[in-house]
Write a protein that binds this DNA or RNA. Structure first.
Lengths: 144, 144
DNA sequence: AAAATATATTTGATATATCAAATATTGATA
DNA sequence: TATCAATATTTGATATATCAAATATATTTT
């Protein structure tokens, strides 16, 4: 087999999946049932209270449909509340509940810890190279 | 916002997603309805005819449940055929059909093209660094 | 103002991911 | 050999991804 490990895209895929799994497991171990993606949505809403769902999706690399469904679950779990947007009735206002705010703060600590564990032993220069190369890949795939 | 772009994990995530979308779009444009993952499963089966589903999953970074379901779709679409494994009846033998074989060959060319487009302008040294760093991240998240 | 166009979000259909539990079978052991 | 443990796969439940189509509302054009 043309070794999968020699194909950079599988290395990329594997690393992000492994990180996700690790991060999710840490959350679970700490007693949270929220997913990383859900956390990210709440956090982004807190920091951008009047953001459109569309813009939210762009920020966190999710399409509209995914955003709609993630929000639905967050409302159901009482992390968010819907309110009406009087200025543009196509939009739904979204308010982070107290429960949501508390959760974000607690989870943030865990996320920071996760990141530092995952990046242990990697130099700043190396990270810069990785970032530069990955952004180039992204660009190459967008232009075409 | 603690800029998401400054968090390496979002850069990783974005790059692999953008690549996937690009690759999938190229397949579609060429008239194939198969997904990259499905293609990968067939290819791996061709190259490892007697592999267990479990091992298959490990090779392509998917869990058993996903493998089962992907195979189900492939059988339905007539890329694969089930046959009995007389030696161990817990296992299902899997045979790639003619249709499967043809598709793999054609799609392989497109995949190679995709990869080279995505990696345009990136040096070998850079790729080595990226690979090394990503493997380190994977390891960091597995040990814990 | 009516019609056409643009924007924001939702919905439907299908594929995949993930975990835990269920099944089926095999192998080991008391 | 009956029982128990291990292995291989499937199934159920839920979350997310993706594309296309549908809705609802707003804005622009004629």
């Amino acid at each position: 087999m043309e070794q999968l490990n020699n194909v950079i895209f599988y290395t990329i895929d594997k690393s992000i999946r492994t990180y996700r799994q690790y991060a999710q497991r840490q959350l679970k171990n700490a007693g949270y049932s929220i997913t990383i993606d859900q956390w990210l949505v709440i956090k982004t809403l807190l920091e951008n209270p009047d953001i459109k769902q569309q813009e939210l999706g762009e920020k966190i690399f999710k399409d509209n449909a995914s955003v709609t469904r993630i929000i639905e679950l967050l409302v159901r779990a009482k992390y968010l509340k819907r309110r009406n947007n009087t200025e543009d009735r196509r939009r739904t206002g979204l308010e982070v509940t107290e429960k949501g705010k508390e959760t974000i703060a607690d989870v943030h600590k865990i996320v920071l810890k996760n990141r530092s564990v995952a990046l242990e032993g990697i130099s700043k220069t190396e990270l810069e190279t990785v970032k530069k190369v990955l952004m180039k890949i992204t660009k190459n795939c967008q232009d075409d």
